[in-house]
Simulated assay, not measured.
Amino acid sequence: MHIKNKLSVAIILALTLGLAGCQSAYYKTMESFGYHKRDILVSNVEKARESQEEASEQFKSALDKFSALTGFHGGDLEDTYERLNDEYESSEAAAADVRKRIDAVAEVGNDLFDEWKTELSQYTSSKLRNDSRVKLSKTKSKFKKMLSAMRKAEKKIAPVLNVFHDQVLYLKHNLNAQAIASLKSELSNLETDIGKLIAEMQRSIDEANAFIKDLKKQ
């Protein structure tokens, strides 16, 4: 079998084991192909960063659609509801992906640091052991800072989704001018909340970039 195909099979198998809850088997399979926890962590952080970038764009898109509705002057409100509901569902899916990616970062990060700490006792050289201990402490501190930024951004998603959901649900059962008026009254707060959410996501993305850069230097 071609090397690339073998690697693809290994990754699929490892992911399957990971989904099944066999995390140790997942790590073992990946390591047999040269992918250690550090590599997996970098990959997971990159995916979390990308999911936040995509979520930011999705929330901007949803806000644009909701804003456009406030200028509604006639037409098919049911069709408008369907478009907004699609935006809400896409935003909900993007939020779920962000949460999943951040959870994956946290899990692999904690496993990496546990392994790193355990293996300190295996050194026979006190100099190398101390050097590794210092690097562990610094890397773990930077990881916690990055993960904290990710969690902070994640917490700002739910309030925005709740407003989206309420407005879509209200529009569903009130396809009239009253529903438009309701959205207009909420739009300013929604714009503010999405602005804060996107700003927090950008800070989280910046922390992810800094962490990846630092980890790759080691």
Rank of each mutant, 00 (worst) to 15 (best):
H2Q: 05
D79I: 10
H73G: 13
A68L: 07
A177E: 10
K138G: 12
R151Y: 09
D64I: 11
V105I: 09
S137M: 11
K216L: 06
S132C: 10
L147E: 14
S137F: 10
I157K: 05
G21A: 06
L15S: 11
D64N: 13
T80V: 13
L120P: 10
Q122A: 15
N162Q: 10
V105N: 07
T192C: 05
E119W: 02
V108N: 01
H173T: 06
E119G: 03
I180H: 04
G195A: 02
L171W: 02
S125K: 05
A181G: 14
H2N: 15
P159V: 04
S182V: 04
V9Y: 06
N110V: 06
S51G: 11
L69Y: 02
M1L: 06
R151M: 13
A179R: 03
G34Y: 00
T70W: 05
S32F: 06
D79W: 12
Y26P: 06
K100Y: 08
T124D: 15
R38Q: 08
T118W: 14
M150E: 14
S188N: 09
S182Q: 08
E154P: 11
S56Y: 04
S141G: 09
K6W: 01
R133C: 07
K216Q: 03
K216G: 05
V160C: 12
V108D: 00
R133F: 13
L84M: 06
H165C: 07
D97R: 05
Y81A: 01
E89Y: 13
Y26L: 11
K65H: 11
D114R: 13
E57F: 06
R83Y: 09
S121C: 02
V134L: 13
A95S: 15
A106E: 07
N44F: 04
D97T: 09
S8P: 01
L63Q: 01
A153W: 02
S90T: 07
H2L: 08
A181Y: 11
G21Y: 04
A153S: 11
S24Y: 14
S61E: 05
L161E: 00
Q202A: 01
T70L: 02
Y26A: 13
V45A: 09
L187V: 03
I194F: 00
D97W: 02
Q122H: 14
F211S: 01
S91V: 03
A14H: 00
D214E: 08
A158Q: 12
K28S: 14
Q178G: 10
L69V: 07
E207S: 13
A48R: 00
K172S: 11
K172E: 08
K65E: 07
D111A: 15
T124P: 13
A94R: 01
